[in-house]
Design a protein around this nucleic acid. Structure first.
Lengths: 410, 410
DNA sequence: TATAGAAAATAAATATTTTTAGAAAGTGGT
DNA sequence: ACCACTTTCTAAAAATATTTATTTTCTATA
């Protein structure tokens, strides 16, 4: 067995009572403070955490010995002797996020200071619910780790994002790779030898998007993942919301319409039947059948081969039909989001996923539907932004979730 | 100025640094532990909170001196010397909850150990948005306090529940008593001389209902307040959810219908236009106009004088029209709740408010609508219960909110 | 370029807390 | 009724942290 990394040692509570326990708790508090508020001086830390200066000094020195903290030089004088500033050591440990999509994965490496060190976007992979597909995924992760330089080898945790229903606590996936008795996390941990977590893709994207922006804590944020389906990530007080069994956020299947379309979930009238990427393709085909024209079809595309990316691309080429349908879709999404805004009164709603790449073509209809359908008093609080991270949000979110799970000890 | 109560002293962080500060923090930790886990021995406390036994002993002794903790005698032996058990002193301080309804108030007194000592239900009062009405409310609270025996005089905080939109943090009410510049809480504090908080009625009811039942923490619970309007209280991890400005939970105004009814809020298609008590009365009148018969009307009631309580009462008398309409209402409420369940995946949904008094007449249609409209995987997690506290839930919730706000320091 | 003032770092003194060890108070078996 | 064993409680010893005082290092101003 490899020796425990010093961070893992600080963040596990085993074999520690009395003074040893308290010192670990104080070290955790120091690390968390540096993590959240950035570099700080001994005085800062002493005041904020109510630890005396000499004690703080000795704890910081121990953490420097452990390689977790470093002296980043002296700050400008505040009127007297210049203080040394201490901060986390970025390269002391690393975390991996794996964002699994239908036709590819995104995989990335994050350091201890939350810098995305490496990120491989759109690595070819075919997501199927088979052992072979799982083996391929494991192989891709293993290769990614092997290709890392030696200085980036201490990878402490991995988070894999999958679409569909996932129980983060138990580590079970209910939509993919659920053919083994044991939780998927266990399978992955055994194969990779590294602590592994599982997360729903939209929740991971939400977390990534939130922590990348201007991070001021205690925020209530909704992240809408607009793709073939409609996913939702909910952040309450900056923490991911799961619900009882991790099934919270099933936004795509709220019964908002009175149609006769049977959804994948088996019910009728789901938001997804009218407002998802899948629905967009259906509506596009219907329009074409009814005789509408589009630059996509004139380029020789067959209606049955149409992909979401084609429509998104053609909005950029100012294809009237695509733009019109995307706007209609936005109106319906907005009507669904209005419900959420009335309920959550969030500061911020972020539009992500492939469809968000249509930019204002989808954002503006959503905004106007929000104004129309949600209470203005509530709605006035809410900003509506497009994803800033795009394809990377899932990877970053995954890495950050792996990191935060590990740092939240136990 | 009256001397500060010892609890207030422990729970304020002013004028304390170093050892004094830490002792206060430890005392708070002790009190919170006894509060949440009930009575405990020195060993329990020492182990749970990682404080050495001698230190724990001395802290407990100080808290006994302060009158906040008491020795509740020896527990049965666990194989050795019998330990003394310590717990909070119920009568060390008190909290008042005031639940303001349209035609009456409920007011109650809670002790430090969360026992409801006194509760006055349906004290006549007319809620209007006037200074006179506010004065009357203040007078009622003042009288309630004056009538308390001397042993119950140390009232540390009051929470007033009002319907409508409320910003708990700032203390402003936006629906009633908002004619003064200063926040309503300030007006009340000046008039009563006691720390005062404001809360939305449905949220307070939710909190009361939650903490009265089998309190196991970390629960996600929805409380639906079915009255003339439809209110919602959201508990996440056992904590009341507010949203950015305290406007979260506007369930009644989600756009679920495609009708042309203008809601009070100014929008069309709100859940309230079809599924509230107000809507029930409208639908009842329409049916009567169309020639339906009901035992209510045959008793000489005029359609325009009809109140919600009349219809609720007549369901108990097995009036067919009332039962039918309540069932229809339940179906629509259930459709709205299905949305929330998909989003929140809660453990429990509690039906409260006047309409919940119709019992299974409303619960069963709601349940079957939930099965129909929400994802079964998510929905399977969710229990649907009727309020256990009925009229008292708001008072208890108010008291508990006052208590918890005070104990969460600052 | 001295020099007063100010903040940070550190050494020494003091206070506090934890450890350790032993006394007190039980239980249960023989 | 005694003895072995447990657990709680507490006194004294040891360890540890905070306070206080001093030194160091820096700025600003004369």
């Amino acid at each position: 067995m490899t020796p425990k990394h010093s961070i893992v040692e600080v963040f596990t509570e085993e074999n520690a009572t009395g003074v040893a326990y308290k010192n670990k708790a104080l070290k955790r508090a120091l690390i968390n403070h540096l993590d959240q508020s950035g570099n700080a001086t001994i005085s800062d830390l002493s005041n904020e955490l109510n630890i005396s200066a000499p004690k703080t000094t000795s704890l910081v020195n121990e953490l420097i010995q452990d390689g977790l903290i470093r002296d980043y030089g002296k700050i400008d004088s505040t009127g007297g002797r210049r203080a040394s500033m201490y901060g986390l050591v970025a390269e002391s440990c690393f975390f991996i996020g794996v964002d699994v999509k239908r036709y590819y994965i995104n995989i990335g490496l994050l350091d201890f200071k939350k810098n995305l060190v490496t990120v491989n976007i759109k690595v070819p992979f075919l997501l199927e619910n088979t052992q072979a597909s799982l083996n391929q995924l494991i192989e891709l992760i293993r290769n990614f780790i092997n290709d890392l330089p030696d200085t980036q080898k201490p990878v402490l945790a991995i988070c894999v994002n999958l679409s569909g229903r996932i129980n983060t606590t138990s580590g079970y996936s209910y939509s993919f790779f659920h053919f083994n008795e044991e939780p998927l996390t266990t399978t992955l941990e055994n194969a990779l030898g590294i602590r592994t977590f599982l997360e729903n893709d939209s929740r991971a994207m939400a977390y990534g998007e939130f922590h990348s922006g201007v991070v001021s804590n205690e925020k209530n944020v909704l992240f809408v993942n607009l793709d073939y389906g409609i996913g939702l990530g909910i952040l309450i007080d900056g923490k991911v919301y799961y619900g009882k069994s991790g099934f919270g956020g099933e936004f795509g299947h709220i019964p908002l319409f009175h149609n006769e379309l049977i959804c994948q979930c088996g019910k009728k009238g789901c938001l997804e039947t009218e407002a998802s990427g899948q629905a967009l393709i259906r509506l596009f085909r219907e329009k074409i059948e009814q005789g509408s024209t589009s630059s996509i079809m004139s380029a020789g595309m067959k209606a049955e081969d149409l992909r979401l990316s084609d429509i998104i691309q053609s909005t950029r080429n100012e294809d009237v039909l695509s733009i019109e349908l995307v706007a209609n879709l936005g109106e319906k999404i907005g009507r669904g989001l209005a419900v959420l805004i009335n309920i959550f009164n969030p500061e911020l709603v972020v539009l992500g996923g492939t469809l968000a790449e249509t930019g204002d073509y989808i954002r503006l209809p959503i905004r106007s539907a929000l104004n129309k359908y949600s209470l203005s008093l509530v709605n006035n609080d809410t900003q509506l932004h497009l994803s800033r991270l795009g394809e990377k949000s899932g990877v970053i979110g995954g890495c950050l979730i792996a990191r935060s799970k590990l740092l939240s000890s136990q």
